[in-house]
Design a binder for these strands. Structure first.
Length: 204
DNA sequence: CCACGGATTGGCT
DNA sequence: GCCAATCCGTGGA
C-alpha cells in the first residue's frame, strides 16, 4: 500500500487532455494531500465530468464568474466550492485554457493517513467498520476527510501540497458509467464514471 | 437589495 | 424515504 506513494506524480499534460478522457483516466489514481510531515492519500474510485460548453449542470456554463474562474484556467488546478452551504467538493480542472471543464472527485478508497482522515471526519482516530466504509464515500466526505476547504481552490496539482499519483487499475477492476448524481440540468449525460463494485462508491 | 436554489449529508420517521 | 441545515453566486426589482 505505502509503495503507492512512491509512484510518479501526474504532470501538466495529463490534465490538459479533454475532460471525459481525464475523468476515466483518474480512476485508480492516488489523491494525496500533505498533512504536516505525513500524507493523507486515497485511491480515486468515483468521478463526474463537467463541461461548461454544452453541459448546463456545470458551474462554468454561462461564462466566467468570481467563483468559477479557476475552471477556465488550463488543466492541473484544484477547484473547490461550497455545496448547499454545508460541504466542500473538490474538482480537478482539465483541458486547455478557457475550456471551463473539470472533474468532480466523488469518492476515494482510503490508502494512507487513515487515522488522520477518521479524526477529520468523526473526531476520533479509531472507527467502526461501518464508519470506515462511510469515511470517503461521497464528494463532501472526501473533502472533510482530507481537510480540503475553499482556501485550497486554485492550488496547483503539480505542486507538493495536493497532487495525484499515477497508479494502474487492478486486473479485475472494471470502469462503469451512469448518470450524474444530484443534478437536474443535462441530467441524461452518462458522465459519472466509477470502478465497478468498489465498496467506497457513494452509490451502487 | 432581496429572494432563490443548489455537483450533499446525516438524522429522524 | 424524507427533510433540514446553511452559505453564497446569481438574477431580477
Amino acid at each position: 500500500m505505502k509503495s503507492g506513494l512512491k509512484n510518479k506524480k501526474l504532470g501538466k499534460n495529463f490534465y490538459k487532455a479533454d475532460v471525459l478522457s481525464v475523468a476515466k483516466s483518474l480512476l485508480g489514481k492516488i489523491l494525496v494531500k500533505k498533512n504536516g510531515r505525513r500524507f493523507i492519500a486515497g485511491k480515486i474510485v468515483e468521478v463526474e465530468a463537467y463541461d461548461g460548453d454544452t453541459d448546463q449542470a456545470a458551474h462554468s456554463y454561462g461564462g466566467v464568474t468570481t467563483r468559477n474562474e479557476i475552471m477556465f484556467d488550463e488543466g492541473g488546478y484544484l477547484y473547490v466550492y461550497l455545496s448547499y452551504g454545508v460541504h466542500f467538493c473538490c474538482n480537478v480542472v482539465t483541458g486547455v485554457r478557457n475550456k471551463g471543464t473539470a472533474v468532480l472527485i466523488r469518492a476515494v478508497e482510503p490508502v494512507e493517513g487513515i487515522e488522520a482522515m477518521c479524526k477529520n471526519r468523526f473526531g476520533k482516530k479509531v472507527v467502526s467498520e461501518k464508519e470506515m466504509l462511510n469515511l470517503t464515500s461521497g464528494p463532501g466526505k472526501v473533502c472533510k476527510a482530507f481537510g480540503i476547504e475553499k482556501k485550497h481552490s486554485g492550488f496547483d496539482l503539480t505542486g507538493d501540497k495536493i497532487f495525484i499519483l499515477n497508479s494502474p487499475l487492478g486486473e479485475n477492476e472494471k470502469i462503469a458509467s451512469s448518470k450524474r448524481i444530484g443534478i437536474t440540468k443535462s441530467a441524461h449525460l452518462l458522465w459519472r464514471f466509477f470502478i465497478k463494485s468498489n465498496p467506497y462508491l457513494s452509490r451502487k
